[in-house]
Nucleic acid binder design. Sequence first.
DNA 1: CAAACTTACTGAACAGTGTTTAGCAAACAA
DNA 2: TTGTTTGCTAAACACTGTTCAGTAAGTTTG
Lengths: 205, 205
Amino acid sequence: MGIVERKEREREEMRKLILEAAQKLFLANGYEKVSIRNIADEIEYSPATIYLYYKDKNELFFALHQAAFTKLIQEFAPIAQIENPFDKLVEMGRLYLKFAVANPELYDLMFIMTAPIDTLDCRNDVWEDGHHAFLVLQNVVQACIDMGLLKHNDAEQASLMIWSMVHGIVALFLRRRLSMFGDDRVIPLMEESFLLFIKTLETGL
Amino acid sequence: MGIVERKEREREEMRKLILEAAQKLFLANGYEKVSIRNIADEIEYSPATIYLYYKDKNELFFALHQAAFTKLIQEFAPIAQIENPFDKLVEMGRLYLKFAVANPELYDLMFIMTAPIDTLDCRNDVWEDGHHAFLVLQNVVQACIDMGLLKHNDAEQASLMIWSMVHGIVALFLRRRLSMFGDDRVIPLMEESFLLFIKTLETGL
DNA sequence: CAAACTTACTGAACAGTGTTTAGCAAACAA
DNA sequence: TTGTTTGCTAAACACTGTTCAGTAAGTTTG
């Protein structure tokens, strides 16, 4: 009686098929131009079918947002090799920036768009992916404090400040609020601002 | 022959009527639920009429975004009284944060939504409102440098770093990425993070 | 004043959106 | 071979932004 197991498996495959089609269209055209009908066309099913596997578009976006988090975490793997926690912190920031610039749509989905978060809100769920990622940062900051590399002793506060700065520059860039600096200067300026921030952590501005 | 003048005046009044109706609905229901038809209903005109005064929805959003900037600048007026440029900088940050928390939809329109910026892009225009606001910050930072209150000597870089941090915390909050801290802790945490940032500017983290 | 022209506005349509539902055919269980 | 469940879809609903032909009023001209 392996039928229910097979059904379960088929169901998961269908969810994956939808998700990957959505991801493909999403990365190719940007999230604004991805409609349920587009995705349905892509996988050669009716639009209504998608609703048998995902409650609504927000839930689909939430699943995409989760996939983006696993990608970010993968790209963070190399930092485990770094001994010094402050160097680790700096490299985390650099990789975070790099990820955002290389995957603007994914970053948007993870940290700017409200769509994925809306499903959490209406399910009274917590944002586990985000919380987990924040705790990774907080642990590194705590390690810095423990080794006397940072004098401020509240790791949570310090982590929020650091995340805010890095997110800030990325968010301004992705939502085209740095256009006044000119297209050719923006990316270098972002990097310089990040480096200046690191220097400021060490010795003040 | 004051007819063309009167017509011009009536045109401006109509633009204002549309803008204020849009603003009202916008602040009451959030931008996602404001449609051209809603606005048309509000002012008791046909939806098509709105297109005689604004090219498209983005242009209307751009006009709203401009109005929000004049509001922000108004709220920044008191900082002119402050002598010490570093105190000025701190107060600017505080007012910026306050504005964002008090007017989340306006802040979103100014610094997060892409809609208003899209009209600039397709007109090959520059973001004057944003650039002007940034220069206000940059001037204060430059004054700090000139008085030896900040040691880093590139005011543009330093300003971008400061703006990024403050925008970052606001953007994370407005897009509900700080939910893990609990509704009651978020606002205090934001303020603490900001104060920690100021302290970091002075002496490092 | 009447005719010609201009302007301001609108009803209706177009092409799209997310989402729901009734119904149908195939797969399964009895 | 029945009866039941499952997977899927066509069609519709209620929206969205936007365009355009047509109308009625305002304005200018003869």
